[in-house]
Design a binder for these strands. Sequence first.
DNA 1: TACAATTTTTAGGTTAGTCTAAATTAAATT
DNA 2: AATTTAATTTAGACTAACCTAAAAATTGTA
Lengths: 218, 218
Amino acid sequence: MNSFTEENYLKAIFHLSAEDGIVVSTNKISETINTTAASVTDMLKKLAEKKLISYIKYQGATLTQSGRQVAAAIVRKHRLWEVFLVDKLGFKWDEVHEIAEELEHINSEELINRLDHFLGLPSNDPHGDPIPDSQGNINQKKLLKVSKLIPGQQGSISGVSEHSSVFLQFLEKSGLTLGANLTIKDVMPFDGSVTLLINDLKEITISREVAKNILVMI
Amino acid sequence: MNSFTEENYLKAIFHLSAEDGIVVSTNKISETINTTAASVTDMLKKLAEKKLISYIKYQGATLTQSGRQVAAAIVRKHRLWEVFLVDKLGFKWDEVHEIAEELEHINSEELINRLDHFLGLPSNDPHGDPIPDSQGNINQKKLLKVSKLIPGQQGSISGVSEHSSVFLQFLEKSGLTLGANLTIKDVMPFDGSVTLLINDLKEITISREVAKNILVMI
DNA sequence: TACAATTTTTAGGTTAGTCTAAATTAAATT
DNA sequence: AATTTAATTTAGACTAACCTAAAAATTGTA
Ligand SMILES: [Mn+2]
Ligand SMILES: [Mn+2]
Ligand SMILES: [Mn+2]
Ligand SMILES: [Mn+2]
């Protein structure tokens, strides 16, 4: 088995390689996991030893088949637990991430499969992120940043790329919740702020920075 | 905060002092936690430093007020999660202990109180053990071992003092489940085995060893 | 291409939790 | 009370995960 720490490294590499391409640098990992680069180097050697990553000195790391599977399993658990916390225990979507960071390390196949059924085999977590299946496959729909849209375009909010509590609370307060329908009214050339209509009801203007972190399906 | 390891030591001392009186010996702890006595000594010093136990060299340890509260909180979490696993996810009572050993360390007051409500504020876990309240108070009813009963006496199964999977499966198979009504028919003088009637229906004979580990309320 | 800046690795240490073997203390037995 | 046995502690070491500071490699730039 892998330790909590090893699992967290694998998860970090998983998320970083999804975002940034394939090879993940020591420094990027050290930032996301909040350790020093020296510590990361130590761990990369160890994970390579265990054949969970391939690692070339001074180049970076990529997950192997088996490393990716381990990482996907952790992400699956994280997201299923988030669904549980929101759907069953009534937490808000901005309150569940930290708790899920702990729950994702609970080690029982049986548990997670029963939980999956108990929750009704959900395909997405409370933030719109797709839940990997038990084989680790992810079915990700193509999503667009609101900042990429032009006036007249429509879309429904299907995800966010920023998960901080303040950001999620802001969205909640503004009515920018998962599933909301957006129509782009105007994009200000000066700073890129976007004026849009939510569910054909409420007009709101958001900064480019906010627009970049809201993902819609067209 | 306390580490997983510290929590496990506190829990062990908690359970041992409930069973065996007050002062808990180094060796008893090392047995229940599966470490060497030397390791236990180290940890006892550390827990005493943190004022979670009082510890006298060569004498043994007892929980302080604050140590007992920490331990009770862990037991509360363990038992609530066991209820969740059985009532909501459909696990059998002999399958949940190991998973609860992991879940009991998840650190969120909010989570555990919401879980408590979600489960309907249960007062006992699937094995009949009482669930401490959020202040750490336990409301334990007086229970008797079946081995202490004499022919003619009646009682309902309200707990077990052995939690191994094999034992629980045996009970299940024999119809000796929580809530079953027992009438003592006969106690064999030779080896102490007990013949009893379950729910006025089925007669069964169990060894003295089994009888010692079934607890009834009269 | 040569030098500077940045990134990454190595070297050497620390802490928590564990272990074995030896020493010490307490308990039991003669 | 003396001695043997059992329980407990101490001493010394190990591993995982981390750190800082220094060295090495890579990358960017003049
Ligand atoms: Mn999350
Ligand atoms: Mn999420
Ligand atoms: Mn249990
Ligand atoms: Mn139990």
